[in-house]
Every structure is written in structure tokens, then in C-alpha cells.
Design a protein around this nucleic acid. Structure first.
Lengths: 144, 144
DNA sequence: ATATTTGCAAATAATTTGCAGTCGA
DNA sequence: TCGACTGCAAATTATTTGCAAATAT
């Protein structure tokens, strides 16, 4: 079901990124895992199959991908950036209880924002924090 | 024009914050400077008149204020949190060129977001990056 | 008198950088 | 071969923490 290696390679090439093995593998991981992983999560997942992988390379790779616009970087928490290969406009919700990050798809076709007409917008970030439905349900059951 | 010390003290007290001199002064600074300062900016501004002020105290104070809900913390950049004493819902725009942060007031009374109905939202963050009107204008003039 | 606040110095941790070795075309 | 990619180790930097001194009520 996942995009094959050749397709991934082409996406990289189209964005002026030489498709090295490490880069392809990192990109593939991000395409297959849309769970907004941190650098450390990606590292721990991939170092098993690429024992020589270093954090430095991972940082280099992710920074390059962000620069070239094929992934987005999220800063939902004070520390530890997260990465998202879904570059379409959508919001995020981080549950303060279970820490899970949800994708929230925007209903509005455009955000009606006063005062933004004369700005050239290159990035839009919308995120929320609170308690997710699952944790809310668990809490209610605990009370009853 | 600025709120007097007594008023600021009362706001602190109302939020269970003992109004020490440092705290009052930091809060006053944030109320009078709505330019989303970093910890370092606040420190450099205040250490002149409060020579004994330490970064530790500043961190303690700001964390306490955020916890008690009288200021918001923004994470528009990967590093360096910024602080905002305007706790009403509004968006931010960070200019990639001049680094200035603008307040963008929302036109919509509510954000129509599909799939958020069952979430309990405690924080909303909306921010944009791009080029601000002033930098756009300067760029155009430079081209002509 | 006693609890709270403050501040120095050290610890922590995410990310970047310098540089040398390695790999692929 | 040559330039790009990789990775170790060290540097950087925002923030937190331990603990002792200062302060206020």
C-alpha cells in the first residue's frame, strides 16, 4: 500500500534532494508514519535496520526536507520538534493527558482573518491543547 | 496610561500569586510591552533597574504566570519561547525577514473546525510565517 | 520565627558545528 | 577521482534544578 521506493526517489529528486539511502529511508518512514514523530522517535525506529545511522544525519536530513518543503516541522511543545509528511493545511490537537497528537481537518475553506490581506503568508500553523475524547471518556467512567 | 501598581498587584493576588517586587515589575513590563518578548529580552530590559535580577527568578516568575493563566507562552520559533500578556484569542504573524511579530485579530467569531466537537480545548494557537507588508514594500522599492 | 522568594552554579537536553572518514557516480 | 554524504565528538544554548542566602510577614 505504501509508495514504492522509486516514487519516493522521484519526489526527492523533484525537490533537488539527492536520494541517498538514508534520505529515502527517512522519507519513507515519515510517509508511512503520520504520527508526528520526534527526532528521537525516528532515530530509535530506524537505528535497528540502519545501525550506522547518526542523530547528526537525521537532523541534516530533516532540516533539508523542511527547507525543500516536502515535510513540515511542528512545535507543539516547548522542546522537541515533531515532523509531519502531510503538508496540506490542517490543524493539530495535542492531548495534555495521553500526549497523542491528532490531525484536525479544517472545515473552512479559508480562514477569514482580518488584517492579513497585506501579508505574504508562507506557513500556517494551528494547534490546540486540551483533553481528547478517549481520555475524556476514561475520566467520566472513572468518576461514575 | 499604564495600569498602576495597585491594579497589577490585585490581578496577581486574584490569581493566587504573592505580589513580590520582582513579580510586579515583570508583570508590569509584560503589560506595557506587548511585543512578545523572549526571556532574554525581558532580562536585559529589567536587569538595569533591578541589578540583582537573575534568569532563574525570571523563569520561575514566567512559569508561574503561565500556570496561573495571566500570560500566554508562544512557541513561534523552534527555540526561545515568547510571552504575551494579551490572553484573548488572536493569531500571530512572524515576519521571516524582519523577525517582527504581529498580532492578527480574528475576524471569525468561531473557527469552524470539523472533528473538534468531542475534544475539550484548553489552549488555541494560531500563527503564520511569511513576509510582512513593510518588508514586502521595501523589497518592491528595491526592485524598481 | 518561619515560610516564601531569590539567585548562583551546576545539570540537562535538543540541536548545531567542525572536521575527518566514507561512499557513490 | 571528486564532491557530496555521513557521523563522531565537542560546542552551543534555552531551560531546569539543588541548595543556600535573603526577604517578608
Amino acid at each position: 500500500m505504501s509508495a514504492n521506493i522509486k516514487e519516493l526517489e522521484n519526489i526527492l529528486k523533484m525537490h533537488d534532494i539527492k536520494p541517498s539511502h538514508h534520505r529515502i529511508r527517512v522519507f519513507q518512514y515519515l510517509m508511512e508514519n503520520k504520527n508526528h514523530p520526534t527526532v528521537d522517535m525516528i532515530y530509535r525506529e530506524l537505528v535497528g535496520e540502519i545501525p550506522t545511522l547518526s542523530k547528526t544525519t537525521l537532523y541534516n536530513t530533516l532540516n533539508l526536507f523542511v527547507e525543500r518543503g516536502i515535510i513540515n516541522m511542528l512545535n507543539l511543545e516547548e522542546i522537541e520538534s515533531r515532523y509531519d509528511a502531510d503538508t496540506s493545511l490542517h490543524a493539530h490537537f495535542k492531548c495534555s493527558h495521553c500526549s497523542k497528537i491528532y490531525d484536525i481537518h479544517l472545515e473552512v475553506t479559508r480562514l477569514e482573518l482580518a488584517g492579513l490581506e497585506n501579508f505574504e503568508v508562507s506557513e500556517s500553523h494551528i494547534y490546540f491543547k486540551g483533553i481528547c475524547p478517549i481520555c475524556l471518556k476514561n475520566r467520566d467512567e472513572h468518576i461514575n
